[in-house]
Amino acid sequence: MSVLVNKDSKIIVQGFTGSEGTFHAEQMIEYGTNVVGGVTPGKGGQSHLDRPVFNTVEQAVKKTGADTTIIFVPPAFAADAIMEAANAGIKVIITITEGIPVADMIKAADYIKDLDCRLVGPNCPGVITPGEAKVGIMPGFVFKSGKVGIVSKSGTLTYEAADQVVKQGLGITTAIGIGGDPIIGTTTKEAVELLINDPATEAVVMIGEIGGQLEAEAAQWYKESGSKKPVVGFIAGETAPAGRTMGHAGAIVGGSDDTAQAKKKILAECGIHVVNSPAEIGKKVAEVLG
């Protein structure tokens, strides 16, 4: 079992023929991901990486039965691409694009909220279910199949956590990069909930950072759920100064409740195993799984 993506997912790539789209689509196909085609407006009818190119997501869905998309469209057009995918009936919309204007995301998030779909990202590394599907830009070889789920706002920190987990002789069910923007589709809470409810996942690693309330919300949910599956938490940015954006647009301390210290405290109070050092994530997972 896994969540969001698996070997049966039918995946299209929006921004398929661009340089980013091409490079990562190639990597995904090489990994064994079921990429059924792509979309680039104006290039419909062509073939790219031995897959059909469509002008619209609607056509792609009609012809290939696609249910999942990964978006590499440039920032100025990415919110529109998200809405197009949702409108065409795509169920899982994974958006890698970094730098989408906030105003555009407010509209896109509002448009898709009543449609039957789930947005992951934007500004995220994607989702991987090891051995089945890599729908993202992560290095596939780091992730081995196993029983630990990962939720993270950050790309390389996700790889770091996965690497540590694998080195403990464990593996990953699904790793979900939710993204570091102020407005994202799937929240920390929703991603944790998906993994806690996944029968194959026996423990969850939750990696957050300064800014916003997503981790606190996830921790509250976990506590109320009464779940016995252990969750290991790490919050990056203990040393970040207030009021400065640390790389990710959403990583900014705005008040006293979104610092790393405040978040760690809430996580611990909700029964999450908090590690202070980012070097101890893997060890802690092995410890809580006994």
Partner: peptide
């Protein structure tokens, strides 16, 4: 490389007895 790992690295520097000079 990467904002999250960069913040985590800063935190590690502090835990090792130093103070980060930058992000």
């Amino acid at each position: 490389n990467g904002a999250g790992l960069a913040m985590a690295t800063m935190d590690l520097i502090k835990q090792a007895g130093g103070e980060p000079a930058n992000f």
